[in-house]
Amino acid sequence: MDNFELVNALVLISNFVLIPALSYGSQLALATLSLTIIYGVLRFSNFAQADWMSFGTMTTILFTWYLQSLGITGGFLPTALIALPFAIILTALFCLLIDRSVYSFYRKKKSQPIVLMIVSVGVMFILQAIVRFIIGPNDRKFFDGEKYIVHALEFKDYFGLSEGLTIKSTQLITLIVAIIAMVSLFYFLQRTKMGKSMRAYSNNEDLALLSGINPERVVLITWVIASALITTAGVLYGLDKSFKPFTYFNLLLPMFAAAIVGGIGSPIGAVIGGYVIAFSEITLTYAYKKFFIYLLPENLEPSGLVQVLSTDYKFAISFIILVIVLIVRPTGIVKGKII
């Protein structure tokens, strides 16, 4: 085995496993942060989360189209990034409307979390209907701007390798936006008075009331932040792949799995969980045949695909990891709320 083979193998893995997993993981981490914050403050598992993500992404797409029709584009960046802040505001307002008309009733009644969870199923239906009604159930691509940062062919020519490395601009954008979002979220939660009061409310509601923390204010901020996170996650995912309501709905299980694996209610846990699920999904469904062909001598080369699970079972991986965590460490990696 010469060095080129090794480099080729590494490039191959970076191209098909590491980079995609990093960007998918960042998207999932943002979505899971949203889920976990809702869980921590409002104390229920929000089944409408995935369709809420669809809703946010849909609003972004609509704003993008509007901007494009005005002749405003992001240049080499996707126009959706300009549309994003507007979409976040609209999505947050919509969420607050739903909160006022639906959730707040049960919150005031101090209903059990499981009742709120069922209520969120109802909201899920309605969001699904709205999204499908407005933008339809089909695949939408809304990416514009520069597509590649590093192109496979150029990379091959430049380094004289037989494997190419592609870095899509959406992957870099995802990473940068996700880092900005996470850093500002953690700064907010750890350093600002409002953020601390959110954590305090999540930790001990009665004592927060006794300390004069206004619960409705905390709930409002929570919906706004969670809307911002989920919309951003949805837009990044949609830019990277494409937007389709049903595909988004299928992200519900990975989100829950990531939240529980990380420790539900814990923001750091959500980030860790997001990456764990994304990396497992991609590493376990990748066919390593070519990788081993590079690395192993000819007589040992594998005949099959060398794939642990077929991509048909991608979300089964979320589930399997979820089950393992529930058996081995039900509190999650970072200790979350268990009762």
Partner: peptide
Amino acid sequence: RSDYLAIATLGISEI
């Protein structure tokens, strides 16, 4: 906790 059953059953049914 009670929501874990919901999430786990959601998962098993998809599988």
